[in-house]
Amino acid sequence: MSNISNPARPVIVGVAPGQPPQVVEQAAHFASRFDAELVCVFVDQARVPITEGADGSVVSEPIDPDYSDPSEDVFDSALAASLEQLLKETGLQWRTLVLAGEVSVALGRVAERLDAAMIVVGTHRRSAGGGLQEFFNRSVATHLAHRQTRPVVVIPAHAPVPEFSHPWREG
């Protein structure tokens, strides 16, 4: 039960196109258990943050000054549709944010700004060229774990979907 004068601290989840759904599902499970908002965050590494809003949002500019697309601060519609599909029956309050810069730094900053209960990140499925990608993903989780004062939960992509019952699902 939420306390209006002391609302639950949000759960931050790092999201990306092609990410295994269990990352968001697990983050939603935590948010549901805490009766908290789920904040789905995409970090654009090709941009740098210029200003930050109190709600965690940022205005950013491209790293390459010759490339300018103001729509880059808008959350990807395909990713938003995917999240909507995953979260539509949860009953959770959730929202999206687009951040810019280095992933672990951006996730850490928004977690501090929003006083998050935790940060949830995932690993990518292994692929033929996935070794380098896996190295960088472990690096994000490692950097978060070493730099944060709040819990960091890493959801492995290759793990089976948990068999526990989600509050919003039958059986």
Rank of each mutant, 00 (worst) to 15 (best):
P62W: 13
G53E: 13
P160A: 06
E25C: 04
V24F: 00
V154T: 15
D35V: 03
E112A: 14
A54F: 13
S60R: 11
I119Y: 08
S2Q: 13
A116C: 04
G56V: 01
D115W: 00
W168P: 08
P21C: 00
I63H: 02
L107I: 15
V39A: 02
I119R: 06
H166F: 14
E84T: 13
S165F: 04
W94L: 11
V59I: 15
G108D: 07
P151K: 08
V105D: 11
E61C: 04
W94I: 09
P162A: 10
G122R: 01
G108T: 05
V105L: 12
T51M: 07
E134F: 01
I63E: 12
K88C: 12
I119L: 08
V74A: 04
T123Q: 08
A31K: 04
F135R: 04
D55G: 10
L144Q: 09
S60L: 14
A16H: 04
V120I: 10
P10V: 05
A141H: 00
R169K: 15
S5T: 09
A8F: 02
S77Y: 01
R47E: 10
G101I: 10
A106F: 00
A31Q: 03
E37R: 11
A27S: 05
L86R: 14
A16I: 01
D73E: 14
A46L: 10
A106Y: 00
S82I: 00
A159P: 03
S127W: 09
A78M: 07
R109W: 02
G101S: 08
V58P: 01
I4G: 02
A46G: 05
S60P: 10
A106K: 01
G131I: 03
P21M: 02
E89C: 04
S165Y: 03
L144R: 08
Q148P: 04
F164Q: 13
P10S: 05
V152N: 11
V153C: 13
P160S: 02
P7Y: 03
L83A: 12
V15C: 10
K88P: 01
S71I: 02
A145H: 12
S68K: 10
P20F: 02
R138S: 13
R33L: 14
G91I: 07
L132S: 05
D55P: 01
A116V: 01
V39H: 02
V103P: 13
D44I: 00
T123Y: 05
Q85E: 15
L132D: 00
N137A: 11
A46P: 00
A78N: 13
L79E: 09
A46E: 11
M1I: 00
A78G: 08
L132N: 01
E112M: 13
E163M: 05
R113W: 03
S104N: 08
G56N: 05
P62A: 15
W94H: 11
V15W: 06
Q93Y: 07
V23Q: 05
D64K: 02
F30V: 15
L87H: 05
I4R: 10
A159G: 05
R150H: 06
Q133N: 07
R169M: 09
S127E: 12
P7T: 00
A46H: 12
V59T: 15
S77N: 06
N3I: 13
V98I: 15
V105R: 14
A157R: 06
S2R: 11
P10Y: 02
A117Y: 12
